[in-house]
Amino acid sequence: MLRVQNLEVVYDDVMLVLRGVSLQVPPGRIVALLGANGAGKTTLLRALSGLLGVHDGAITKGAVTLDEKPIHRLRPAAVVRRGVTQVMEGRRTFAELTVEENLRLGAHTRPKGRAEALERMYGLFPVLAQRRGSVAGYLSGGEQQMLAMGRALMSDPAYLLLDEPSLGLAPRLVEQVRDLIVQINRAGTGVLLVEQNATMALSIAEHGYVLETGKVVLDKPAAELLADDDIREFYLGRAERSFRDVKHYKRRKRWLS
């Protein structure tokens, strides 16, 4: 179980961005984390993967535990070794390296299982197998997302943290990414799925959390969230009425407007 307990995160010693967030990802399950721009979703993932330091962020209260052992003081490499790997927002593939080099790097903490993991990834993402020798910078957006996911899976994580994998992808590719997440999950990996595309995320998740300005405001089974009127209005844009206020409403992601 990956558990976040009453977490507070501060950037630059002053900006309180997470205000006591608690959530949990049971092993082998998909959990969705929704929220408007700036709600703190990415910040939460950074707190899980140990990447806050890079951004001058720090955990000031609370804990992150993996199977009841605290991991929030570990370096990113140690977190990866324990089986929690993050796919960052915007893919962040190494554009100058080849597809295969990107994948090999994903196995940095697990050199022994590398060859076998590589074959597994080429099976899961046949596109990557075709382009294994080409430079990652030349891949399309969808291929880059697959590469980013494949690279993270190379460390054979127990929990995969996905930050907006559908961002900027055409509807058909969003479906493909969704199916891949399901497939990855079926193979036993727990997934914390951060998304703005609430329909997509809730359609495959078992449980969902909605984050707003650093607080969890909704915490329900995914099916209930999907039926929730507020969620429908806010994320699916069925009504013109705003969720809280008009300004907030306008902060929705590009493709919803």
Binding site: V80, R81, T93, L97
Partner: peptide, 23 residues
């Protein structure tokens, strides 16, 4: 080599390299 690759990756994008477990 594994280390050489890690150095190239870190040179390109330090945070992304950290996220893969590179020190």
């Amino acid at each position: 080599t594994r280390t050489g690759l890690a150095m190239r990756a870190a040179s390109y994008d330090q945070e992304a390299a950290l996220a893969q477990g590179v020190s």
